[in-house]
Design a binder for these strands. Structure first.
Lengths: 146, 146
DNA sequence: CCGATATAGATGCACATGCATCAACTTGCG
DNA sequence: CGCAAGTTGATGCATGTGCATCTATATCGG
């Protein structure tokens, strides 16, 4: 029942490393006057969805956010002029999210800082083989459902 | 300047896996009526500090929390009767944190649920060699400073 | 010993999050 | 069709977090 040492070490390393790196990523963006990481992810997901836009329901799954979290993130980003809510053709309950020109520009503006962060914090510390192995182990850990 | 694919894959896997697992850990504890994970970590750190207790300044480094976050976490845990603030001998600005009997009991009560979570989510999915390798790669990633 | 500077910890304010619930609409079943 | 059940998205309320700043004490340089 008690987890073995390697399990505990992996857990501790996962918790601490992810905390630290996410923290550094947020700071890297904020220090250049950019919005939080979550906005980048949202903009990217919306852009990748193509011209039809994306439903908030779908977005929440991609972003691993709770429903109300998604609703409010969209509120803020719409208020900031980066996204637009449109009525959803074929489902009057729903809506469809599309990026504005400012939204696309914002994401593009964030990328260099983000890329620099990734190169410095990961690219510099792990060679590609190690990075791939790390991704493999993490994906294995993520498993299917909870 | 643009990070290679393996770097990006590692980053995405790190962000998503840590989010999901931390989320599941919180749910596992909450579903049995326990306080959040951070309380476990704090109780453990305070207990491990020994009879002299621990300074909030030291605690904040161990828990990777900002100073004000530590201050407020301690507020809540003191209010809940799990920790006690004592004047710090030799530094009248400071204080020393010690666990109450209820605090020790709370941590002990949380451990089975936590251990079950770790065994199920990590022990079952990675063999000890993989877990150790994961810990090694993550520690490498954590690096020294930002 | 005194004043400048640094460190420990708390806190007011704005904003973000979790939880529960709601209103609107859609779907499936008799 | 018509009603029960499910899905989409929003929101009131309590709580948590980030930021800046404040107070009190400690330390260091002269």
């Amino acid at each position: 029942m008690t987890p073995d040492d390697a399990t505990i070490a992996a857990w501790v390393a996962l918790a601490t490393t992810s905390r630290e790196l996410l923290e550094r990523a947020e700071r890297a963006l904020k220090s250049e006057g950019h919005p939080p990481l979550a906005w980048y992810d949202a903009l990217l997901a919306v852009e990748k969805a193509g011209p039809g836009g994306i439903r908030p329901v779908a977005l929440k799954d991609r972003l691993l956010l709770p429903q109300y979290g998604t609703s409010r993130l969209l509120d803020r980003m719409v208020r900031a002029g980066l996204l637009e809510r449109r009525p959803c053709p074929g489902d009057a309950r729903g809506q469809v999210i599309v990026p504005t020109a400012a939204g696309r520009a914002q994401r593009a503006a964030m990328w260099p800082a983000y890329a620099r962060f990734l190169a410095a914090e990961i690219g510099e510390r792990l060679d590609p083989g190690e990075a791939a192995e790390l991704a493999r182990l993490l994906d294995k850990l993520r498993g299917a459902a909870g």
